[in-house]
Structures are given as C-alpha cells and as structure tokens.
C-alpha cells in the first residue's frame, strides 16, 4: 500500500499530503509519525494540507489525535495550509480542532514551531 513520505529537516519532521487519500493510509501515517518522532527525537512536526480540497471528520480527527499524541511524546504539531472551503466545512461539521496549532503556510509553521520550542526550553530551564 502507498505510504505518505515523512521528511526530516534538522529536528523537524515535514509531511505534505498531496492527494485525497483513504482512511487506511491516514491511519498508517499517524503511526509512522509517532514512530518517527521516537526514532529521530524530532521536536516539531509540520503537516501541510494545502493540496487537500476535502477533509472529512475522519481525517480531521485523525490529524487532531496525531497532534495530541505527538504532544504526549514530546513533539509539537502544526497543520499548515488548510483551504478556506475546507475550514468552513470543518466548522460547520462541528469538529473541534482547538488543540491543534495551525498556520497559513510552511514558513509560518516553522516560526510557530520555533516559538513553541523556545518557550518550552525556557520553561524547562526555570
């Protein structure tokens, strides 16, 4: 089965979801992300969804759960590039994504990750 590739850049992981995919693949991605965080000690994960023109409750929930799980094992997740129509639909659908960091594009995503990590390091030093 096809798999979504996970790239590593410094202490970040970068994932770009390029096409509409089915439930199984997104589930596998979730596992792969968590395993890769453990394996590489990544501190942050960027998931770019700007190419997706649909995100139903299953996919949104799986992404959200991945973000929460990643948080539990020490990595922050930022989802980038949610399309306007997808955002409106998710709000209407009623899925809460409060716990997930979002950014307009990868650049902003990087900024947010850096801020979050600096903040965390600062707290840990205290």
């Amino acid at each position: 089965m096809e798999r979504i590739p996970i790239l590593k850049l410094k202490n970040f992981l970068i994932i770009s979801i390029q096409t509409d995919i089915h439930d199984m693949i997104i589930k596998i991605l979730q596992e792969d992300i968590l395993n890769k965080i453990i394996e590489t000690h990544a501190r942050g994960v960027l998931i770019d969804v700007s190419a997706l023109d649909i995100m139903d409750s299953f996919m949104a929930r799986t992404l959200r759960d991945s973000a929460i799980m990643a948080g539990l094992i020490g990595a922050k997740v930022v989802v980038t590039g949610i399309q306007p129509a997808v955002a409106i639909t998710l709000i209407e659908l009623g899925l809460k994504m409060n716990q997930v960091y979002t950014a307009n594009n990868l650049d902003h995503g990087f900024e947010i990750l850096n801020e979050l990590i600096t903040e965390e390091d600062f707290k840990n030093k205290l």
């Binding site: 023109d53 995100m55 139903d56 409750s57 299953f58 399309q83 306007p84 129509a85 409106i88 639909t89």
Partner: peptide, 17 residues
C-alpha cells in the same frame, strides 16, 4: 461554488463511510 462543492463532498464522505 467551491464551498458548497466541499460541503456536499464532505457530507458524501460521512454517509458513504
């Protein structure tokens, strides 16, 4: 329009699942 397309496609995804 694009928003309605997305809403209908998403509804379909939920019901088809």
């Amino acid at each position: 329009g694009i928003v309605d397309q997305t809403k209908i496609a998403t509804a379909t995804s939920e019901l088809a699942r």
